[in-house]
Amino acid sequence: MDAREYTHDGIEEFFDSDLAYAAKYDALAGHVIRSDDGLSRKTRELILIALACAEDKVDPCADHIRDALNHGATDDEVVKTIQLAGLAGSAWGIKTGSEALKRVRNEQ
């Protein structure tokens, strides 16, 4: 779908199997993630980085790091978010975040 900014392995095929569901999911994601109502997009992406770190999800973490940087976050803000996730979740959050951040930095 054009509205989806990115996807992860295995998800696109699932969404393509039910386009009505995919459209509703994309609308909800657009409302929750891509809104600046109440929280800036940058702040939303930093929160999503922390959640991806806590869940040990490197690919989504890297996606949200890219989005946070594209929406005005600094490298230092991303690092501080990863540190916070590691403190709240565990050292695995730091491992996940640092791996994702290294991947994004290597792309630049």
Rank of each mutant, 00 (worst) to 15 (best):
V58N: 00
D63K: 13
N70Y: 08
D37E: 14
L51G: 03
D75I: 06
Q83P: 03
K57A: 09
V58L: 02
K57L: 11
G38K: 06
L48A: 05
E45M: 14
D36L: 09
A52H: 07
V79D: 15
K42E: 09
K80G: 04
G72E: 12
D59R: 12
L48F: 04
S40V: 09
L84E: 09
R44W: 04
G86D: 02
K42P: 01
A62E: 03
D59M: 10
D75C: 02
N70D: 15
S40I: 11
C61D: 00
L87W: 15
T74K: 12
V78F: 06
A54E: 08
L48I: 07
D76H: 09
I82N: 01
G86H: 01
V78L: 09
K57S: 09
G38C: 07
A73N: 11
V58E: 03
L51N: 01
E55Q: 15
A62F: 10
L84R: 08
A85E: 03
R66M: 03
A52D: 06
G38Q: 07
E55T: 11
I82K: 03
H64K: 05
A62Q: 04
G72D: 13
D36I: 12
R66I: 02
C61T: 09
D67A: 14
N70F: 08
R44H: 04
I47H: 02
A50S: 13
R44F: 01
Q83I: 10
C53P: 03
E55V: 08
L48C: 02
D59I: 08
D76R: 14
D75F: 02
D76N: 09
S35G: 04
D37M: 14
N70W: 08
D56L: 07
R44D: 00
E45A: 10
R44C: 00
A50I: 15
D63I: 10
Q83H: 14
V58W: 00
R44I: 01
T43C: 10
H64M: 03
T74G: 12
D75P: 05
D67Y: 14
L48V: 03
T74L: 06
A50P: 07
S35N: 06
H71T: 08
L39D: 09
A50D: 13
G72S: 14
L69I: 10
G72F: 15
S40T: 15
K57D: 06
D63T: 12
A88T: 13
V78R: 00
D36W: 11
D56K: 10
L69A: 04
P60H: 05
D67S: 12
P60M: 05
E77L: 09
L84Q: 12
T81S: 06
R66L: 03
H71C: 06
G72P: 14
I82Y: 01
T81D: 02
R41I: 13
K80Y: 10
R41H: 13
I47M: 08
D63R: 14
G72W: 15
L46N: 02
K42A: 06
T74H: 05
G86N: 01
L48G: 00
